[in-house]
Amino acid sequence: MRLVLGLAGLLGFGVLLELAPRIGLVSERYAPPTSTILTTLAEQAGEARFWTAVLDTTRTWLLGLAIAVLLGVLAGIALGSVPIVRAATSSTIEFLRPIPSVALIPLVVVLYGPTVTSTLVLVVYAAFWQVLVQVLHGVADIDPVAHDTARSYRLGRLARVRYLVWPTALPYVVTGVRLAATVALILTITGELVIGPPGLGQEIAIARTSGAVPAMYALIVVTGLFGVVANVMTRAAERRALHWHPSMRTEVPA
């Protein structure tokens, strides 16, 4: 039932966008009807150029996300494990985190030009904080009894990270990755749009300057679908990584 209603909602939205320009509610020049957008989308999907763009965007997104997650987890565990370091760095983190990543756009453009590197810097900067803050919360969440037990059994530093810190922080890490994935995708496409390395964002910029309005809409639909797929993927990964965790297990009906 939910599925039917959901589909009806999507369909209704499509019909609305189809009818609005047809009956002259909005100009067809600005808002092509749904059918035109979908035909353009199908045409695009038949071209190699389109798939290259999708691939480029995917690569930048995943690479940026991977770097950000790696750096965020390492820094988070290192900073979070030592109370004095954590206290000394928290004000700096609170200060650097809200700096909007787009403020760096002019900087990376003069430093690296319109390249993938520029976009990667933006993506990593924006996604890094999402992961770091979550990992810091996770490391702070360690159960004192588990911590004392690990000490009583004389677990070494590495063993403690492996068996105590990591399992405690993992749910937070996963949340961080999910948030970072969304932010990274937005910044990847924004970077391509504004700075101009190849990818879906650049295709949108090209469609805009050449006045290909339906193509622009088609590409925007693609970015939306891209985002939905990314969300579904991260949620699936979350369930997989945390299948042992009580918060996931309680969802299974008894």
């Binding site: 749009l193 622009m216 939306g224 985002g227």
Partner: peptide, 10 residues
Amino acid sequence: AIPPPVLVPI
């Protein structure tokens, strides 16, 4: 899921 900046051209 649509990244908001791509709406700028529209």
